[in-house]
Simulated scan of single mutants.
Amino acid sequence: MFSYTGTLTGSKTAAKIKKDIPKMLERGELLTMEEFYELWTKWLNEVYHKREHSGLKRQGEKYTVPIELFMKAEDKYYKPAPPKSYASILMMKAERVTVYNIGIRKFGYEYRAQELCNYHGEKVDIKYDPEDVTRLYVYTREGKKICEAVSQELLLIAPRVSQKALEEHKKMQNTQLRNDKELLEEFRTPYEQRGNVPGDVVGALDLMVKGKGDKVVALPQDKQFASELRDKKNRQKQDAEDEFFSRKAQDALSKLRQLG
């Protein structure tokens, strides 16, 4: 059990009496901390706050009673802003994570620090600045700071990386990876098994050599194949016509030379 056994700070040294604490405890003369706090609060509100203070008079205060000064001098006294470093920590995001043998995993990256080796497998609290996720501030669950864990991979990208930029980067990576997997799967699928391949194109025909008795009963009806076939025939026809007219022109030129 805890109790207060001192005297009022305003009493003189000569008035202080040595107390036999064990005997007082046996006689039930000691107050519990709860009883002491209740009496102290009553004295604070009914005596201390309502009594004039000479110290306030010496400082030239308009209100010399503590409770009056507290209630009426708000424009003169104000609570100072916390230090910038402390305010920055308050604005950080906080989470509880697990420490693995490689450190802490966050945002798809690994954060390491030598001090984390002593917390392998344990839960710890982390804080991080959304505008710079290259490092994590690590604390025990009781609030004691352990270390600052950094991601060497992110530091290779830039000295500061925002959470938004990192999320966009990971999103782009995942999209690219998904597209590459789909393309690879399409290449691995045999041509005739692809769902968008017509059954009558060249890739779906049996191109094995047949016996002499086999006959072609149908040609491919694919539009692209037919267009290519027409273009090929037209080119052959044009080449033949060009060759014919060239030959005729050469004959006519030869006869003119003979006539002088």
Rank of each mutant, 00 (worst) to 15 (best):
K72Y: 11
D75H: 03
D75I: 03
Y78L: 00
K79I: 02
P80T: 02
P80H: 01
A81Y: 03
A81I: 06
K84I: 01
S85C: 00
Y86L: 08
I89H: 06
M92H: 12
K93R: 15
K93D: 14
K93Y: 07
R96H: 05
R96I: 14
V97A: 04
V99A: 07
Y100P: 06
Y100F: 05
N101C: 05
N101T: 03
I102W: 09
I102F: 04
I104L: 02
G108K: 05
G108T: 01
E110M: 01
Y111C: 12
A113R: 08
E115F: 01
L116Q: 05
C117Y: 09
N118L: 12
N118T: 13
H120K: 15
G121K: 14
E122W: 06
V124S: 05
D125S: 11
D125G: 13
K127A: 05
K127L: 11
K127M: 09
D132N: 14
V133C: 04
L136S: 00
Y137F: 12
E142P: 00
I146Y: 02
C147G: 08
E148Y: 10
E148C: 07
A149W: 03
V150E: 11
V150H: 10
S151A: 09
Q152I: 03
L154I: 02
L156Y: 11
P159S: 10
P159G: 07
V161W: 00
K164D: 06
A165G: 04
E167H: 09
E168G: 06
